[in-house]
Design a protein around this nucleic acid. Structure first.
Lengths: 188, 188
DNA sequence: CCCAACACGTGAACC
DNA sequence: TGGTTCACGTGTTGG
């Protein structure tokens, strides 16, 4: 509903690449940032970093990785409406399903084209007017089939990308009265 | 520290669907949820919920939405290696590019089949043995062509899903020395 | 002025 | 045992 409007420019890229500079040193919550005091191996109960300083860096890495992934996702989808984390994922889903539909359609078309070529082959045999060059023609066809089979066979697109009867469970985009998430992902 | 519940033990699905129950009603701030007291216009510095309680719910919604989106993404990708947030996105990217490649391949095949069908049409005219059923057969062909054109024309898959020369900018998975992310989306 | 969106640190839970 | 991942609340910033 409340559509875009704000396209806050300066996309991720710039900040992602310089992520350590200007944004950091001023907006940083100061001293425990880099844990200036003995951080790596100071198990003593220093008030600044008791045991969490190990966690904070890990967490930071995690966040960074997730952002990279999201950025990569953004780069593979042709048209992104907004640069929001959520919108990026949403557009990706849309695009993905477009691709799947499209693939299904193309496959159907291929099947149709193939069957038509078979129809094209048959009349010759039916009308039997091609007795003289029958084996020649048939040989040609089988060759054709073999060639195509060799080239496109179900080498991978038949096994890897076969479109299952997927089904988006997306829970209705917009509103959905303010609820909790608590997506307990880590357990199991 | 102050919260208590935290008994999330299932996967997304369950918690996502029942996300409003047990986890909610104890950890919820409750009163300002529906603005029971005059919270909306109480600029006074109340120690309990000065202005942040508005933020926490908004933030919660944001988190929830993002998780839903991620879950939807998970549902559309056929094979997910791990349920990690990052892994989900990564697998999605991989699958997506597989789809794109696949589509390109299928299109090539279609083009090839079409050109071959043209070759197939010609012999009938060459051998001229089909004079008696010529119009019938030709009618059939034109019909096929027309039907196919009507059905698959470039209605959308030609404009929307055309595969641009995309290029994953993914920034090398693992390492990237422990830096900051600060994917400052908002700042300028 | 608030709203939307973000990064951050932190406690907790799992393996 | 520690290493990972998560949700949460908070401060901040740009529109």
């Amino acid at each position: 509903m409340e559509d875009l409007g704000h396209e806050y420019q300066n996309y991720w890229e710039t900040t992602m690449f310089f992520q350590n500079q200007e944004l950091e040193f001023d907006s940083w919550p100061m001293e425990e940032a880099f844990s200036g005091s003995g951080d790596s191996s100071s198990p003593d109960g220093a008030a600044t970093s008791p045991a969490s300083s190990k966690n904070v860096v890990s967490e930071r890495n995690r966040r960074q990785k997730l952002n990279q992934r999201l950025f990569a996702l953004r780069s593979v989808v042709p048209n992104i409406s907004k640069l929001d984390k959520a919108s990026v994922i949403k557009d990706s889903i849309d695009y993905m399903q477009e691709l799947i539909d499209q693939e299904k359609r193309l496959e159907a078309e291929i099947r149709e084209l193939e069957s038509r070529s078979i129809i094209l082959e048959n009349p010759i045999r039916d009308y039997d007017c091609a007795n003289n060059f029958g084996e020649n023609q048939l040989q040609d066809f089988s060759d054709n089939n073999g060639m195509r089979s060799k080239k496109f066979k179900h080498m991978d697109y038949d096994t890897r990308v076969q479109h299952y009867p997927i089904e988006v469970l997306e829970v209705h985009e917009g509103d959905m009265d303010g609820r909790e998430d608590s997506s307990g992902m880590h357990n199991m």
